[in-house]
Design a protein around this nucleic acid. Structure first.
Lengths: 244, 244
DNA sequence: GTGGGGCGTTTTGCCATCGTAACAACAAGG
DNA sequence: CCTTGTTGTTACGATGGCAAAACGCCCCAC
């Protein structure tokens, strides 16, 4: 059977039948290489495609009329991207590759057939979009009610924990692959202030850096500072119908 | 057939079969009255229930360790509430009634059966949760990258447009039913500053107020100020499977 | 009717946080 | 070598938070 990183991801939550895996793999039949910095989707463009991210990193963002940018979400391999085009005819957000990536585009009619034929997968997608929703509300609380310092801390922990979902090898350090300006645009700060906070945290021994690689030196305190909770531990999908 | 405000809401997007309507109506078999201010769900509590909001208003929020509150979402009749409990065993957010309300709780196993038997409804729920996701990213951009003035403007417009989805009678005024402190907690400001902005906007003739009722006097300028786009106009669910 | 009590709004003064602008240092890559 | 992009650093100032109090309003008890 063809491997599918999307099926692999979903299978981390619930067991999948072979038929389901095969159907999911079909979404990834048309892998497309995208160079770092290339646009995958432009805001307001008519969209009928969605994507599974197979390799590399992608971000979604919007540009406000005054030119400032808000990064909405950073995506990692196995993530399902562009779900907004299931319901809006024009893209509400832009997608750009943060590194050289491989995305697998598929038409929403392919998704339709999948949802139609594999109700259990439809339910699963619904559940996972609820998890995404919670991730967004967590960041909303972060932007709305916490200090710059707390936002940086929770942002680092969030990226760290998400990377660890798929990469077991990570223990305490990771490649952020984001400029400080991008971090700022994700958590509502300027690059200058992100820099202040990061250097401060480095001085205090909370983190350390060696050419772009971040090492978390005191996760306990970082969690406190960022008011961060790792949601991944608390998932429960056992109540879904069994496969078959 | 029993009326179901949830079915009515969904039917605004796509036609539903009688069987689907009936199945949706079953979710609302146990209406429960909730007094203004009463908790419907407490953060970190074990949850197995979800809700359809039939009447009144509800908000979801979290309290941070320093006591500050972030309001995550305000809900109106026909909204589907508490979707996080589909995937997390403990509630990531609290739910409280903003007015005297009627909610219809149902167990997630009832949802399971619905998703299982009516794949088209499952798909529809998935799509609508994607719309919710976009609503959240819009507010994320608002909190991360816009001024206090812009946040207030877009917040008012957002509530206004959401009320108008179900209540055709609304033309330019509505009952906000939120204190300025609550507005602030929703958009990341203090009540003091919300007050400053609202009075400023009133002085400029952008809005006017009479005992809690807001009238939007210049929606065009409000949309500009808030960098607001009404997403409701742009929905497209026609590609879903047909009923039957 | 009168006198609270509670709740929300209005108002003020002060000041911390964070943004703006500008530039230096440095690395990578053509 | 020059260009381009990222990080580091500073000075200055605006936005919006904080604390505190007054005000208006509604409801209730007396």
């Amino acid at each position: 059977m063809a491997t599918s990183c999307f099926a692999d991801r979903l299978a981390k939550h619930v067991p999948l039948s072979d038929a389901e895996k095969k159907a999911l793999a079909r979404l990834e039949e048309n892998p497309r290489k995208v160079k770092r910095g290339a646009m995958i989707q432009r805001v307001n463009e008519t969209v009928t495609e969605l994507f599974v991210l197979r390799e590399g990193r992608v971000m979604s963002f919007v540009i406000l009329p005054d030119g400032s940018r808000q990064i909405l979400r950073v995506y990692f391999p196995g993530d399902f991207i562009g779900s907004a085009s299931t319901i809006y005819s024009r893209a509400p957000e832009s997608l750009v590759a943060l590194s050289d990536t491989i995305v697998c585009p598929f038409d929403k009619h392919a998704l339709r057939r999948l949802l139609d034929e594999y109700p259990r997968v439809a339910a699963l997608l619904f559940l996972l979009s609820n998890a995404e929703r919670v991730a967004l509300t967590d960041r909303l609380a972060s932007l709305g009610r916490t200090s710059a310092r707390a936002r940086v801390a929770s942002f680092l922990l969030d990226i760290f924990d998400r990377l660890r979902v798929t990469d077991e090898g990570i223990t305490d350090s990771f490649d952020l692959k984001l400029t400080q300006e991008e971090i700022g645009d994700a958590i509502g700060l300027t690059s200058v202030h992100v820099n202040r906070m990061i250097r401060q945290m480095e001085q205090e021994g909370l983190i350390s850096r060696t050419n772009g690689r971040i090492t978390l030196r005191d996760m306990g305190r970082l969690e406190e500072i960022g008011h961060y909770t790792n949601r991944h531990k608390d998932m429960d999908l056992d109540w879904l119908p069994q496969p078959g």
